[in-house]
């Protein structure tokens, strides 16, 4: 039983981790706390519906479509909403992302209608047994792809020039500007990456159930995940996502599903009080 919970928590947590990673990428580069991350995830599921059902693309085509469309969306968001607000106080930044999620939700419902959409990409179905644990193929695929994306992101962030510039900008905005880095382009890249990661998470969650705007609320679990892990830490986001997935499965399994909120948000509160920079983050300003 416990192994089973750990396994399913790990797989679910991997998807959360992916979404949280996108969130952290945006935060680290642009200092925007993106409350729309959940809605971007739901948008990813609808992009997959567009690709596979509306356009009739095969699996590879759909994936390419989702990645390109989500990347474009991220750039557009940065250009249209985030850039004009550069240098404005925190509340404006938080609120613009909330406005973004309201707008995205309305647009999705206008285009696709309020009902859920079936999303079937032809990914492997069925299940297999590993030791004492039963694993569904789709969960395993979701986890595998999530880890692959996370690895790709880490490689990009560590070793590519754009990744280097991104880290430099995150460390010191002024220094980056002074040394002639095109900060806007870096920010747009961060938004594109963050949106793509959220969208891929959305494709899998949509595949596990249905594509609907209510996926937003699952995506919002990336918020506590990323804070528990540490806002400033990229690995922290992934581990935070895993933790939230495990907490969800264990609390639902052994106590009650309602307890999830308590077991996610009480630790969040404690972390905020004791170690606001998160489990893996570095101490920074923002404390009294």
């Amino acid at each position: 039983m416990l192994m089973q919970f750990l396994a399913s928590g790990f797989m679910l947590g991997s998807v959360y981790g992916l979404v949280a990673l996108g969130f952290a990428a945006i935060y680290k580069a642009t200092r925007v706390f993106n409350f729309a991350q959940g809605m971007l995830m739901a948008t990813g599921a609808y992009l997959a519906v567009t690709g596979s059902v509306v356009l009739g693309l095969p699996l590879v085509g759909t994936i390419a479509f989702v990645v390109v469309a989500a990347g474009t969306l991220g750039v557009v968001i940065q250009w249209l909403l985030i850039r004009p607000l550069a240098g404005r106080p925190l509340l404006a930044m938080v609120m613009i992302t909330i406005a973004l999620s309201i707008i995205l939700r309305a647009l999705i419902v206008i285009i696709f209608g309020g009902g859920a959409q079936t999303l079937r990409l032809g990914l492997p179905e069925g299940s297999f047994v590993l030791g004492s644990v039963r694993i569904s193929a789709i969960h395993a695929t979701a986890a595998g792809v999530s880890w692959l994306c996370m690895a790709l992101f880490m490689v990009f962030f560590r070793f590519s020039k754009a990744g280097l510039l991104m880290r430099a900008t995150a460390d010191s905005h002024e220094a980056a500007v002074l040394s002639g880095v095109n900060v806007n382009r870096i920010n747009a890249t961060a938004w594109a990456l963050g949106t793509i990661l959220a969208a891929i998470g959305g494709v899998f969650l949509g595949q596990l159930q249905v594509a609907s705007v209510e996926l937003e609320n699952i995506g919002l679990l990336a918020l506590p995940a990323v804070v528990i892990g540490g806002l400033q830490s990229i690995p922290g986001a992934i581990i935070g996502g895993l933790l939230v997935g495990l907490i969800e499965q264990l609390s639902s399994g052994y106590i009650s599903p309602k307890a999830r909120d308590i077991f996610v948000y009480v630790p969040l509160l404690i972390i905020l009080l004791v170690r606001p920079w998160g489990l893996f983050g570095e101490r920074e300003l923002g404390r009294v």
């Binding site: 039983m1 089973q4 919970f5 399913s8 679910l12 998807v15 969650l205 596990l208 159930q209 209510e214 609320n217 699952i218 969800e248 499965q249 639902s252 399994g253 009650s256 599903p257 309602k258 999830r260």
Partner: peptide, 19 residues
């Protein structure tokens, strides 16, 4: 066996059913 309105997974519920 309760489940949340916004759920991403039903493994704990189904394991309960299995038992």
């Amino acid at each position: 066996i309760p489940i949340k309105v916004v759920a991403a997974d039903a493994t704990p519920q189904v394991l309960d059913i299995l038992a």
